[in-house]
Amino acid sequence: MVNKNVIRNLSDRELEKYIESNSRSVADAVQYAYEILQERGRTFTVSETEHIEALIAKKREDEKIVDEGWDKGLTEDVNAIELYTNTLIWILSVVFGVLFGGILQILNFIKIKNIKGAIITAFYSIIYISIQVVLINYIRQNYPDIIHDIFYVNFILSGIGATGLFFIRQQLFPRDLQYRAKSYIIPIIASIAISIALFYLF
């Protein structure tokens, strides 16, 4: 959230930069700078006024939050921080395992400088994966009649683990954080490559 009093302390020259066409400031900051300049006696031509109002309108449209549910805070604002979405983390966790989704969530926490969240996610991922491996091995050794269904069991366990990651994110991410989706291409390619390598190794 932009504090108008902070912007009010800026010089006229600094405020002018807020209303330029290439301004990377958020809509509220541009609006406040425009209003403060008017308060200080700066007069705008009709053309300048239309330009500034169009700039503010465009920025508000760009900043519009596109998701209020699963990926709450997701926006199309080009100035917003780039993070991996909850949807991507969930998919990787369920399909490839909690480790893969956990790594993306750790990177997200590091990106927003939340070391506590990164550490908790790391510990959770390691502990959950360990428990999941033990359970799968136990089922294989003691219930040979359902070995052919082990894939579905593993899928369900991964889904439960993904839910845990989601809960951690919901509790530790800033509730007013707006972010744009970071590309999913590299994480998916890396997950496939590592999974194939692990399959042939073990």
Rank of each mutant, 00 (worst) to 15 (best):
L198P: 15
E82T: 08
I103R: 10
E53Q: 13
E53M: 14
I119W: 13
K59Y: 09
G101M: 11
S21M: 05
T85K: 07
D71R: 05
E39W: 04
N79G: 12
G97W: 01
V153S: 06
K72R: 11
I192T: 07
I189E: 04
V46G: 09
G73R: 04
D62L: 15
F166G: 14
V66Q: 13
G159H: 07
L37M: 04
E63Y: 03
Y152R: 08
E39C: 00
A54S: 13
K72T: 02
L172W: 11
S21K: 10
L37F: 06
M1W: 03
T43N: 15
I110F: 09
I56V: 14
Q105F: 09
E35G: 00
K113S: 13
I81P: 02
I110W: 15
P144G: 01
V30N: 00
Q171P: 02
L37S: 06
T49R: 14
F151G: 11
G69Q: 02
A29R: 08
Y124N: 14
Q38W: 03
H148T: 11
Y152H: 13
N86K: 05
R169W: 13
I186F: 02
I120Y: 02
F155E: 12
S21F: 06
Q31T: 01
S130Y: 11
L198E: 06
G117W: 00
K64D: 10
N154K: 10
T163A: 06
I156Y: 09
V94H: 07
D149Q: 13
E35F: 05
D176L: 09
L74M: 13
I168E: 02
L55A: 12
S183V: 06
P187N: 03
V133L: 06
Y32C: 08
E68D: 05
W90V: 09
Y179V: 00
F109R: 00
I89Q: 05
E63M: 03
D28G: 07
I156C: 02
E61C: 02
T85L: 14
I129P: 00
L37I: 05
I36G: 12
L107A: 04
Y152C: 06
V6W: 09
E20H: 05
G159W: 04
